[in-house]
Simulated assay, not measured.
Amino acid sequence: MAGGDGLAVFGCAGCGAVLTAAVSEVALPVHLRDTHWERLHPPLLEAGTYAVDPEPYGPPWRTWEEFGAQEAAARGIFAPSGNLSDGPSDTILLAPGDMRGTRLILERAAGYCMGIDGRDGPNLACLSCDLPVGTRMDDCGCWQVVRLLPQAIVRLPGPPERPVMDWPELLATGALGQRLSEYQDIPAGVALAHVVAAARGCPVEVVSGSVADLFGPALIALLPGREGVKRLDLAGPGLGEPATELVLVPVHPQTGEMWQPHGGGVAVPVEATLWAELAFPSHRTRLPAVGGLPTGVERDDPLPPHPWLPFRPSGDAFRYTLARMPAVLEPWLRGIYDGCSSLPGTAPMV
């Protein structure tokens, strides 16, 4: 499927009918591969955007043993990682609301309990010619998304592309909002895997603050020891660069490129919304105020809800990410991977 300038409009490869609204390409969300079980999820992508998933997805599924280590490694998976898809690669992901001119194939609309989970393969057909073109998923425990089959679609001319925002604009416009705040354990698990790999087996000392609160317990459990300690802190637009060996930097949500430090610290990628939440936490006061409540001040009635569990990185996302790093073939990191099925300092694996 050839690319082109401007926004993308995807059409049916069988008859040329328009299948989507005009959408702009963004980076593949890192929270794609993990979910919260038995909970209804929001759309994976913002309206008006799409992303390309390079990994195979959908039936048929095969076990790790059926693939074998060599074939799995050729697909970028370097450690046992459950059942693996033998479906198509490079599917186009969109928000369901950006679809046009399709119908649901009812005999392929099975799910777990509250919607469709795509277990039977492509379940959307072109209204004009009935060609199966993609799979919609919206069941509990699934991000709401449509996956278009690359062989069943063509790219049609669209309007001019939206400009890529620079980092100051992203911060100033609030584009790094808190839309996924209750699911931030997933990008946190991905970031934790990158920190551990970047540490190269050395213990990590986290600079006090929000980063230490989030990653400190897991890093102490994963990388014990006293020798060769590497320090970890945030770096990025609006923060500058600390004098630490490891720096957590944001990944641009449109381009997927990391913010690049100029110092000597090793850059560790973090999903931009999580990075912004760690770098610029909202500060609220409960002190008495005279003359009314100014913006940002909370009332003390009722008390804000208290989480029943502390916020911790997702263990599933941590392990999934490690399995796709060539470094996991090294004995020290493979030992961490094999021993982290129940990891202190992370959210429970399911």
Rank of each mutant, 00 (worst) to 15 (best):
S210A: 15
R39L: 14
P88D: 13
T135S: 07
P302D: 09
G141N: 11
R286Q: 05
L222I: 12
R284Y: 14
G118Y: 00
V207C: 02
V249Q: 05
G141F: 08
T285Q: 07
G292T: 01
L32Q: 08
Y50Q: 07
V266Q: 15
E169C: 13
R119M: 14
G134K: 04
F78T: 10
C12M: 08
M137Y: 01
E227F: 08
D300N: 09
I105M: 09
A193D: 01
I116F: 02
T135I: 09
T49Y: 06
M114I: 09
G264T: 06
Q70R: 13
P305K: 07
G118Q: 04
D185E: 09
G68M: 06
A2P: 09
P122A: 15
G265E: 04
A276D: 08
H36S: 00
T285W: 03
G315V: 02
G263W: 14
R75W: 08
E271V: 04
G339W: 06
L219C: 04
P224D: 07
D117N: 15
A13Q: 07
E71L: 12
R103Y: 01
Y112R: 11
Q178T: 15
Y112A: 12
L127K: 07
S24D: 15
E55K: 04
P160M: 12
V196F: 09
R231N: 00
G292V: 09
G58D: 04
D117E: 12
T49V: 13
G121T: 15
G76E: 07
P261S: 13
V190C: 10
P307W: 04
T35I: 12
G264V: 05
A73G: 12
E107V: 15
G189D: 06
G3E: 11
G265D: 08
R324Y: 05
Q144Y: 14
W275C: 01
V270G: 01
S81H: 08
P54W: 01
G97L: 11
G315Q: 01
M258L: 15
A272W: 09
P261W: 15
V26Y: 04
W61F: 10
C140V: 13
G189A: 08
E55F: 09
G101A: 12
G158D: 11
V229T: 14
P348N: 01
W143L: 03
G216L: 11
R312N: 07
P29S: 06
R226T: 14
E65A: 13
W332E: 07
I336R: 02
A109Q: 12
L127M: 12
E55P: 00
Q144N: 08
L278R: 07
C142M: 15
G177W: 12
P269L: 03
C15A: 03
C15H: 05
D213L: 11
W143D: 06
S208E: 15
R136W: 02
M325L: 15
K230E: 11
Q151M: 08
G11Y: 00
W275P: 02
L45T: 07
E298Y: 11
H194A: 05
A17H: 06
I105E: 09
H306N: 03
L248I: 09
A267P: 08
R231F: 06
H31M: 04
P54A: 14
